[in-house]
Amino acid sequence: MIQFIHAIDVFLPLVYAISLGTYLSFFLVKNPTLGRFASHFLFLGILVHIIFLGSKWAYFGFFPIASSFASLSMLALAIGIVYYIVEKIVKEGRTGIFFLSIIFVFQLISSMFIKYDQIPNQLLSDPKFGVHTTFTLLGISALAISALYGLMYIMLVKEIKSRHFGVIYDGLPSLEILGKMGRYSTVVGIVVLGIGILLGHLWAYKVLGYFFKFDPKIVITDIAWLAYVGGWIIVRKKRWYGLRGSMITFWGFLLFFTLMVFVNFIYKGFHKFM
């Protein structure tokens, strides 16, 4: 089994690299056949990735997010799944290059530096924790993707308004499509992260005996989620689907991300499983 895991550690970045190359060609040449191939390779990568993480879980007996490098691989998969769903819903693959770049780099770093000899926290062996983590990571990935769509929207608006039509203008789909993809990602993010947070609280109550603990990470995640829900209601009510909506999505996520990085830097204890 361990040989199989090591083999996939090499094979997985390769599949993502092929998908990345095909998405890049599609972005530049816009040949629909290339777009289809790129999407198929991404699907293959996701399948292999699920088998890979499943095998690790089965072999080591704990959810595969014990180290930063293991989490990076999990994050790559989460971004892949959410992007793939959004691409299939909107039927638009020209933005794939941006997400595949992230997925490839994350998985490459993970495959290169991951070590399998560390002993994790016993909490990780509980499958319920795995479900909580999967939903949370998928939700955060979806919100990150929506932020990237927001950024693409802002960049495309800038190019259109400046009348200098470069690679971004040529390669990206219309503002309407970018807006739509961003909105879908936000909805997926809010719903899935909401489930992840709820499962986390329930699991904490069952295992640790409390529903909520004043931990900055939990507080920030809960507040960020509530802010997203509130923001989404306002955007829908005011119909700020254009530039304003994209600005809110991008800057909102950037704030959330910065706070999380800051809190992780200050508080090292909670949510560490080594």
């Binding site: 789909p173 219309s174 503002l175």
Partner: peptide
């Protein structure tokens, strides 16, 4: 063409 870069349908 400019319109197509802003709207898809």
């Amino acid at each position: 063409e400019l319109a197509r870069k802003i709207y898809s349908s």
